[in-house]
Design a protein around this nucleic acid. Structure first.
Lengths: 195, 195
DNA sequence: GACGATACGGACCGCCGGTCCGCTTGGCAA
DNA sequence: TTGCCAAGCGGACCGGCGGTCCGTATCGTC
């Protein structure tokens, strides 16, 4: 299985598209009005190339998301506390949620585009499965906490991109306030278990 | 301001559309493949009539949703415990969330369509504002519970239509399991406050 | 019965995600 | 260096959707 190599113009174009899309989603306010044609044009590439490289719109979004998420994934999987695996569960859960929140705040249009992409639910994306699996295993280490699977879903739901957008935009909460309130909530959701 | 009456063929058509849409969203599995043209055809009405009556797709969905929600609204605002206003806050919160959950389970395609309607976030819809306002005022009556506004959002987020869909569909949780887990979660989220 | 306001309906529009296919280019072998 | 062909390119094209427009039909009133 020799793992067929891509031609190098293909990888160059792939990078160009990724960079262009990254820039567009950062600049434009609403993710809705970044079209595939826009991205292709901004990357100096034909639409065919774009779709060949990423399959469809959701594929592009996922690739972008994954790229931006990479550093945090590493920090979570093998970094120092409070995010890394050496942290005691009761502290790590709020830290993880805080990280998710901050990530979504820093990547609002992209997160919005990905979660809101009409067709498939956000729950099928592999990055969600990763977050959920991780959070669940951490929750499982807290004695007396029933239903870690559901709890993980429910806690992550509090960081949904459109909710964050609503709170930060319409209700004018600052980053600090949001983080504090989410922390408060997550701690409370864990506090009664096996005290 | 004499509150201009509608012509009666107009109201008849409006009802027909509502009924047709109701049926379509119940029958078809994915809300995505119920188009406006489908609804118009099923109602025996032109597209122009449909759009005149409801403005746009989101308007139709909201109208449908509101109609189905009416009975529950009444039960919440002036019904008997555990949903009605006479219930003590600590019991009413889980009851309210359970009601939301059951409603979404009973109206999966519609809820999915409304929350997932690409353009505007679900948080701008007036029915969400109503749920949130209600839940917040109930939470405010629980002493020692900080940030009732955020808590209300976070708890409601655990009942998001696509999450419910995922849990009921992909993870194969039964109605009973879902309700039990949500109840467990909501109780825990309240439990530590001023015991 | 007549007449203005209101509503009807379906042809039509613009847009967007996604496909297709004739042309170009990279990479390998002779 | 040359020749060859698979891999890749790109933009014209397509199907379908939400939404609009306007000539026609209907309502309701005088």
């Amino acid at each position: 299985m020799p793992e067929r190599r891509s031609r190098k113009d293909a990888v160059r174009n792939r990078e160009a598209v990724l960079a262009a899309a990254d820039a567009l989603f950062s600049r434009r306010e609403s993710p809705e009005d970044v079209t595939m044609a826009d991205v292709a044009a901004a990357a100096g590439v034909g639409k065919g190339t774009l779709f060949r490289a990423f399959g469809d719109r959701a594929g592009l979004l996922r690739a972008l998301y994954a790229a931006r998420l990479a550093s945090m994934r590493e920090a979570v999987e093998s970094g120092p506390p409070p995010l890394g695996p050496a942290t005691p569960p009761r502290e790590r859960v709020p830290a993880l949620l805080d990280a998710v929140l901050c990530f979504k705040l820093d990547n609002r249009p992209l997160a919005l585009a990905l979660e809101g992409s009409g067709n498939g639910s956000p729950y099928r994306a592999e990055h969600y499965a990763w977050w959920h699996g991780l959070l669940r295993t951490v929750l499982e280490q807290i004695p007396g906490l029933a239903e870690p699977g559901f709890t993980a879903h429910a806690l992550l739901a509090a960081t949904r991109a459109d909710l964050v957008e609503h709170l930060a935009g319409k209700e004018c909460l600052s980053r600090q306030q949001l983080r504090a309130q989410l922390k408060e909530f997550s701690v409370r959701a864990l506090s009664s278990a096996s005290r």
